[in-house]
């Protein structure tokens, strides 16, 4: 098997795909954002509870490929408890990582580093970033329910 594919499907991604974290609905969330990728049919809903400037809880439900599901799972783990600003910084780092925009310090990135392999698969960048864009939409909108593509 080629190294590229192994690098893309790291164990951490496979684990999160099989047993996603925060894979549940939040009752009466402050934000509920639906995400849909019309190209491949991936669809997720992200739920979020906010207190002042902090994301106190975030979860997701839906279906899609392993990359998009693992990404959503890890996103919820990383963003939970962060301030809006910190969450947006993570989003930026993640975006730069998967689009190969800059050499990122893998050590600093922690769990996000698992998605470095996506750089070699431009067709899969959308899968990896779908939930992050949705999280970003949840943070930047004032309305309770929005739909993003």
């Amino acid at each position: 098997m080629t190294e590229d594919v192994r690098e893309l499907y790291q164990q951490i991604i496979l684990d999160h795909n099989k047993k996603p974290k925060n894979f549940r609905e939040i009752e009466n969330p402050d934000r509920k954002v639906k995400a849909y990728n019309p190209l491949c049919g991936d669809q997720y809903t992200i739920f979020m509870t906010l207190e002042d400037d902090r994301v106190v809880d975030v979860s997701f439900q839906g279906s899609g490929c392993a990359i998009s599901k693992a990404s959503a799972s890890i996103m919820t783990e990383l963003v939970k408890g962060k301030t809006k600003e910190e969450a947006e910084q993570l989003f930026e780092q993640f975006h730069d990582l998967v689009t190969g925009k800059l050499e990122v310090d893998m050590f600093e990135l922690g769990k996000l580093a698992a998605f470095a392999g996506v750089r070699d698969y431009p067709a899969r960048v959308k899968c990896a970033s779908l939930s992050w864009h949705t999280m970003h939409a949840a943070l930047t909108t004032d309305t309770k329910t929005v739909t993003t593509e």
Partner: peptide, 29 residues
């Protein structure tokens, strides 16, 4: 046990080109 986009990527790694997705026939899906 695998989503079609993951199948497509892994097959691509083996040099095999297949189509994955709804094939412009969403009502069929």
């Amino acid at each position: 046990y695998a989503h079609s986009h993951d199948i497509g990527t892994i097959l691509d790694g083996e040099g095999i080109a297949v189509r994955t997705g709804h094939h412009c026939t969403q009502p069929v899906m």
